[in-house]
Design a protein around this nucleic acid. Structure first.
Lengths: 338, 338
DNA sequence: TTGAAAGCGCTAACAG
DNA sequence: CTGTTAGCGCTTTCAA
């Protein structure tokens, strides 16, 4: 590969026989340039194959036409869904997208680092950014940001969140309507607002149905298959096992199914199972789920961001994306109706 | 959101009571700074929450620690697979990743635009870039690039490509070994090197087996389900239909299955089908496929790029990623053995 | 060991 | 209408 010096605005200016500022004016479509000059400049641009230097441009004028997306881990299914929605929003717009990632949650992680990532994009090359699952309660940034599924319930920035509470409640009401009275719950990571909202939905649904709340039916978990598996084993080996289990996310729901299979417990005949999130395999397993429209969340977040970048103000800084209960074969009335 | 002026190196300098150049030296770990000064500077950095401005930094020193990935359409399954591999390579490294996308092939498309995208990242903020499926035969860029699956067979830049020719041949040899003598072929987009290499594999396998080459069994296609569907209909409605069909990619293979089902032709009993690429549904349909390790291609591409960025030279600028024939239920010997 | 000064490529004042 | 000038925030000589 031959050493190559990028073409600068000065090269264009020299070839077109004008000053650099005139070239800049033409490039930015200012209207105070003579037609003849404009032509000469464009011709030079084309001939030299000039492309403006993003770094230099964004340093002076603070409008780059680039929106940022900050993801801890692009390989994660959640991130990929977000990406699809974000991509659609970008495709419909005149903005381009810059996705920034450190490749893993390990390398990013801590809240203090997030600030760095936001600053990296937002204070230099991006006109604004969407950040996925941030832990920080606030960000210092020049340009606007929008969060998807922030760790805290009421962050100091615009955000979009699924209706975790309502979704959990709906799932529970469905199980209760089938006749279940003892329903186990596998919790999510307790530092996440989403996980706690789901737990609260579980609790309130039981209370509102006038059923007794048995705290021993609530098992800690961390959104992994393993936690669902072990939690379910614990619940199902009791002398008085629940007739249904609601898992705080898709992964742990899979763990529950696995545990049931291992113990020879028939789903849904002997045990009903419901999971939150939309795991792709849900339909193969016939798992009843509370679907989150993850891609849609990415889409809405980007649309919100674009509005902010254009200078509009959002009517409501917290957008709540509705979930939907999708009933499949993993649910049935309990064997002994009360 | 309060107006916020980003913290600059000057703010840090003022607080630490040193000059901006000293701050810069500390930030870049130069060793000619007094320990005591170094401490003061780091303290100021921490206190102010300073993050260096990417645009300014990349404008001066031409090392940013950022690698670029240029994708026409992040929503596409191929892109997502690439992303997974790329992500892994990034996670293992000390680089961060910047993905640039315009959101759709529509908005990007033409080869002339690719040059812009490469320049955008490579001549300003990135230390080098991986570009997916580029059409251009060459790029003008300051920093190194590596292509994945370029349109042309021998581009003027380092690239990584699946063993399309060998893979196609292996699939054909397998069909021939089952006893098939008349095998149809659904072509891919003829402007792509990959598609033509697969076609050549088909042709050469037939020749080498000493079978007659019937050009009317080769049907044009464009990698879509529809083209596979129509191509298969055309082949199967002949008075002398082939006993097997090899489709140049996964999508068109699905189209073939669809056409066979519609005509009431049993797969694999009356028709064997093989597809290239790895469609995720392959195993559900029992489709025999020539798998490409797409994520792996992304991984290798990034590793190659990192080497180039570090100043190494590649032993071979064209890396050929082996494909693998995965035999599933869609293949069987023809009804009448010869 | 440190600071002053120059300048990366670009845009936005301000003059002409 | 166009050129000159002054920086954006940073790194890198060159002196001290």
């Amino acid at each position: 590969m031959p050493r190559f010096r990028p073409v600068t605005i000065r090269d264009v200016a020299r070839v077109a026989g004008v000053s650099t500022s005139t070239v800049s004016r033409v490039l930015n479509n200012k209207d105070d340039v003579a037609d003849e000059t404009r032509q000469r400049v464009w011709a030079a641009v084309a001939r030299l194959g000039y492309t403006s230097n993003l770094a230099a441009r964004s340093m002076r004028s603070h409008r780059t036409g680039l929106l940022g997306l900050i993801l801890p881990d692009v390989g994660h299914p959640f991130a990929i869904e977000i990406l699809k929605g974000v991509n659609r929003a970008i495709a419909e717009s005149s903005f381009d997208l810059i996705v920034y990632t450190t490749g893993s949650i390990q390398k990013s992680g801590a809240a203090e680092h997030e600030q760095r990532y936001v600053a990296l994009l937002n204070n230099s090359i991006a006109d604004g950014s969407v950040i996925v699952a941030p832990a920080s309660p606030s960000f210092q940034t020049k340009a606007p940001i929008v969060a998807v599924d922030p760790h805290v319930a009421c962050p100091g920035y615009p955000a979009i969140q699924a209706t975790n509470y309502e979704g959990a409640k709906e799932a529970m009401r469905y199980l209760i309507s089938l006749g279940h009275q003892r329903i186990g719950f596998i919790r999510g990571r307790s530092e996440l607002a989403s996980a706690n909202q789901r737990l609260q939905g579980y609790i309130d649904a039981i209370r509102e149905a006038g059923l007794p709340l048995d705290p021993t039916l609530i098992i800690p978990g961390d959104y992994t298959i393993e936690s669902g598996y072990h939690g379910a084993l614990q619940l199902l080996r009791r002398p008085d096992p629940p007739t249904a289990i609601f898992a705080a996310n898709d992964q742990s729901a899979l763990g529950v199914l696995q545990a049931a299979a291992e113990l020879g417990i028939q789903v849904p005949h002997e045990l009903s199972v419901v999971g939150f999130d939309n795991i792709p395999e849900a339909q193969y397993y016939g798992l009843t789920t509370v679907d989150q429209f993850i891609a849609e969340m990415g889409y809405v977040a980007m649309r919100m961001l674009m509005r902010l970048v254009e200078g509009e103000t959002l009517p409501d800084p917290l957008y709540r994306m509705p979930t939907r209960l999708v009933v499949r074969q993993s649910c049935a009335p309990p064997i002994k109706a009360p």
